[in-house]
Computed example of a mutant assay.
Amino acid sequence: MSTYIYGIVGTPHPDLPDLPDGASGTDAVHGVNGIGEPPRPVRIVRRGELAALVSDAPGDLKPKRRDLLAHQDVLSEAASWGAVLPMRFGSLAPDDDAVLAVLADRADHFAERLRALEGRVEYNVKAAHNERAVLHQILAENPELRAMVEVNQLAGGGSHEQKLQLGEKVAATVRAREAGDADHVRRALEPTTEAVCAGPGETGWPADLSFLVHRDAAVGFLSAVAELRADQPHLDLQVRGSLPPYSFVDPGPDPAEPAG
């Protein structure tokens, strides 16, 4: 049976079982349950000053809501103990020995990352356009485009070619505005954070950014988000957090094969 990996923490810690070096724990970590149906008990494998939170992996592992939430819950519990390096959902190793080998091989790197992320959390911010508000702004700021719209209206909608030309002009202007707004979101929020990471491209969001925030600075960060909402009413902002710092782990060579 494969070993499912939730994340990596430092040891010793009073909330972790006291295991000898190179051993794995078979008892649940303070009753924390993991993925699967029924839920698999979470245990640790320890090597030196590092420990991985793991459980047995179900044979039919899929990104079901129940399992996604269980993965998140384990990491949230771990984050209450101290710094945690969260693994993405679906991280598997062949067995506990393979996990121990990775902890040994990457010990210095993982220890450095844990120190760097101590007391830090992640906030993800996505921004989308309120289409009606953006079109109003574009027409207000672009006399040429506004004139094209007025001509089309006077001509009863204009010819097919005129409609295409107007549509292409509007689409190009909106794309330019999206790029500018994404940069504005980043510049407005970055001063209250320690690092920023752009999300994967082609997500459909003009801005998809993850910010590393010290817990003590979280109030300031959320205040900056509120100011941005008030200053840019044409932007619909979605904020997720606080989260384990998924985007800032930098694990080096991938210690596990993603499931499915």
Rank of each mutant, 00 (worst) to 15 (best):
Tyr6Met: 07
Tyr6Pro: 02
Ile8Arg: 02
Asp21Val: 09
Gly22Thr: 10
Ser24Val: 11
Thr26Leu: 07
Thr26Trp: 04
Thr26His: 09
Asp27Ile: 04
Ala28Cys: 05
Val29Gly: 03
Val32Asp: 00
Asn33Thr: 09
Gly36His: 05
Pro39Ala: 15
Val42Gln: 02
Val45Leu: 05
Arg46Glu: 03
Ala51Thr: 01
Ala52Gln: 07
Asp60Met: 06
Asp67Arg: 01
His71Val: 10
Asp73Thr: 13
Asp73Glu: 14
Asp73His: 12
Glu77Gly: 01
Ala78Trp: 06
Ser80Pro: 00
Gly82Tyr: 06
Ala83Lys: 03
Leu85Ile: 08
Pro86Asn: 06
Gly90Ile: 06
Ala93Cys: 12
Ala98Glu: 08
Leu100Cys: 09
Leu103Asn: 03
His109Met: 08
Phe110Cys: 00
Ala116Asp: 14
Glu118Cys: 04
Val121Phe: 01
Tyr123Cys: 11
Val125His: 08
Lys126Ala: 08
Ala127His: 04
Ala127Val: 14
Ala128Asn: 07
Ala128Ile: 01
Asn130Leu: 13
Glu131Trp: 10
Leu135Cys: 06
Glu144Lys: 14
Arg146Ile: 00
Met148Thr: 02
Val149Leu: 14
Val149Pro: 00
Val151Leu: 07
Gly156Met: 09
Gly157Val: 10
His160Trp: 11
Gly167Asn: 09
Lys169Val: 05
Lys169Asn: 09
Ala172Leu: 13
Arg177Trp: 12
Glu178Lys: 12
Gly180Asn: 09
Arg187Asn: 10
Arg187Ser: 14
Arg187Thr: 14
Thr192His: 14
Glu194Leu: 14
Val196Asp: 01
Cys197Tyr: 08
Ala198Pro: 13
Gly199Glu: 02
Pro200Val: 11
Glu202Lys: 13
Asp208Val: 03
Leu209Asn: 02
Glu227Cys: 01
Leu228Gly: 04
Arg229His: 00
His234Phe: 07
Asp236Asn: 11
Gly241Phe: 05
Ser242Gln: 08
Ser242Ala: 15
Tyr246Asn: 00
Tyr246Val: 00
Ser247Thr: 04
Ser247Gln: 03
Val249Gly: 00
Pro251Ile: 00
Gly252Ala: 01
Pro253His: 04
Ala256Trp: 03
